[in-house]
């Protein structure tokens, strides 16, 4: 602590000699680093560490919200979930939802970025407006999809019937396969702009000269992309993928509004199933459901991060 107090703002820290400078810098750096980290850590500890710890603790009990009595049951909640067919469906759905959307968001986002990276009239306006799906509050855009996916009054079905492409309304949300595909499409819609704009940013750093030189050497568009563009945008693409995987695995709102996990539990993901369980005050079980997601995401995150840092 005494070192920190010498590091008051405004107080000049002038190194006397060059040799001394680096020694002192390293020594002081660690205390300054903690000082810099402190505000963020305080917020996270107060508002995150306790709830998180509480969540882990409560998941090992049979606690119910509003009831004083609870017993320590160790891993019973986790164990019971393994035999719960709905939970097994939930795990399966979460993976389908995650891996059925993230690759599409990635590829479409990449394409969107490559398109928007060109110069054309009103490009600035296009860039802003193609962000809209990401900006509209999900609580409201999900309701728009609820209308588009209506079994009876879907405008999409109406138009396709009118054009004679189909004869009956599309059963968007009433069929297990259709339902999950419909959810994926809505999720992709919402997620593409995030990828697009992140990768677009990365593209700004691709040196034009390199690209031109490669073009003069007769490299194809494809070759140029892999040789020149990809190395530059690789890291941002992976980071965007990482965050998108987390968001998708932890998604709640979209599914809650559109299906609440139905029909017959065929679209439950961790978030909705945990929330439904919590609805009956079984907070222990609900916490266990949520926490099952944690190791899965952590493993994915570590894998991706290692890859990102690999050639740092």
């Amino acid at each position: 602590m005494s070192i920190i107090t010498t590091e008051q703002p405004g107080q000049p820290v002038v190194p006397h000699t060059r040799e001394n400078f680096f020694v002192r810098l390293v020594r002081r750096e660690s205390s300054l680093a903690w000082l810099f980290l402190a505000p963020a850590l305080i917020i996270l500890v107060v508002f995150m560490a306790y709830p998180f710890g509480y969540g882990i603790y409560i998941s090992t009990t049979d606690a119910m919200v509003g009831f004083a009595g609870k017993n320590f049951v160790w891993l019973e909640n986790y164990q019971r979930l393994l035999d719960d067919p709905i939970f097994r469906k939930t795990v399966r759905n979460t993976f389908i939802y995650g891996f059925g959307t993230v690759p599409f968001k990635l590829v479409l986002g990449l394409a969107l970025a490559l398109v928007l990276n060109q110069t054309f009239r009103f490009s600035r306006v296009f860039r802003a407006f193609l962000l809209l799906p990401w900006i509209v509050p999900t609580a409201i855009s999900s309701l728009a999809f609820l209308m588009l996916y209506n079994g009876v009054l879907s405008p999409v079905s109406w138009v396709l019937v009118d054009w004679g492409i189909i004869s009956d309304n599309i059963n968007f949300l009433g069929d297990p396969v259709n339902a999950i595909v419909s959810l994926c499409v809505a999720n992709i819609w919402r997620g593409v702009p995030f990828f697009g704009i992140s990768i677009l940013a990365g593209l700004q750093a691709v040196p034009d000269e390199l690209n031109e030189a490669a073009a003069l050497d007769g490299a194809s568009v494809w070759q140029r992309f892999w040789a020149v563009t990809w190395p530059v945008i690789r890291n941002i693409t992976l980071i965007a993928t990482l965050f998108s995987i987390i968001w998708t695995f932890a998604d709640f709102q979209l599914i809650y509004v559109l299906t609440k996990g139905g029909p017959a539990n065929s679209t439950h993901v961790f978030g909705t199933y945990s929330y439904q369980t919590l609805g009956q005050t079984f907070i222990g079980d609900a916490a266990a459901i949520s926490l099952y997601m944690f190791p899965i995401l952590a493993v994915l995150a570590v894998m991706l991060l290692r890859y990102v840092r690999h050639d740092d």
């Binding site: 997601m293 944690f294 995150a301």
Partner: peptide, 8 residues
């Protein structure tokens, strides 16, 4: 980032 709000 990995802790879901539905639990927190």
């Amino acid at each position: 980032y990995l802790v879901p709000p539905t639990l927190l």
